[in-house]
């Protein structure tokens, strides 16, 4: 995918909360602000997302593993796309970046509590989380920004 107008403004410097041990200016999971319209306006890191990296996170089974549930024609070289969620072809024509960021951070806030899509940057998770994942999110704040930038390239 070629670069696009991803997160041009990207709320530089707006992210102030500092997670312990995390990079400065990174918003901690509990501090991500959702608007009433279920958007997350500000970048989680202040660093613009990199769509090429986001594409990798999307496909990586240990990170986004998005193909487990979503088809995506841009990745048709990869075998087996799930059909649990809708195809993400043209997703950027249905949702804008601040909405996509919200979906990624905590899909339950945007859809309903009943959704099976995991929240990728939230600590609001299931019981008995395995030891090595306690207190951790599935992907990092910068991963979220990168995936948002990648999704923004998936236009109709």
């Amino acid at each position: 995918m070629r670069a696009s107008l991803h997160s041009a403004v990207a709320g530089l410097g707006l992210a102030i909360a500092i997670a312990s041990g995390a990079t400065a200016a990174e918003v901690a999971p509990a501090d991500v602000k959702f608007t009433e319209d279920n958007t997350v306006e500000a970048s989680l890191t202040g660093t613009p997302g990199d769509p090429a990296k986001g594409r990798e996170v999307f496909a990586d089974r240990r990170l986004g593993n998005c193909l487990a549930c979503h088809a995506n024609t841009d990745m048709k070289d990869q075998l087996f796309h799930g059909d649990v969620g809708p195809s993400l072809d043209g997703v950027a024509s249905r949702w804008n970046e601040v909405q996509l960021r919200a979906i990624l951070v905590d899909s339950k806030k945007v859809f309903t509590d009943a959704t099976v899509m995991p929240g990728f940057y939230t600590l609001n998770v299931g019981i008995n989380v395995r030891e090595e994942s306690v207190g951790k999110t599935i992907i990092s704040a910068q991963d979220v920004e990168d995936v948002v930038a990648y999704l923004a390239t998936l236009k109709e």
Partner: peptide, 25 residues
Amino acid sequence: YTRNGQLNLACSNCHEDLMGKMIRA
């Protein structure tokens, strides 16, 4: 019916709600 783990899913999510769907392969 209890959601578990970091992925926050219950047995019922996959084997009841999503029965018949493809999760990857």
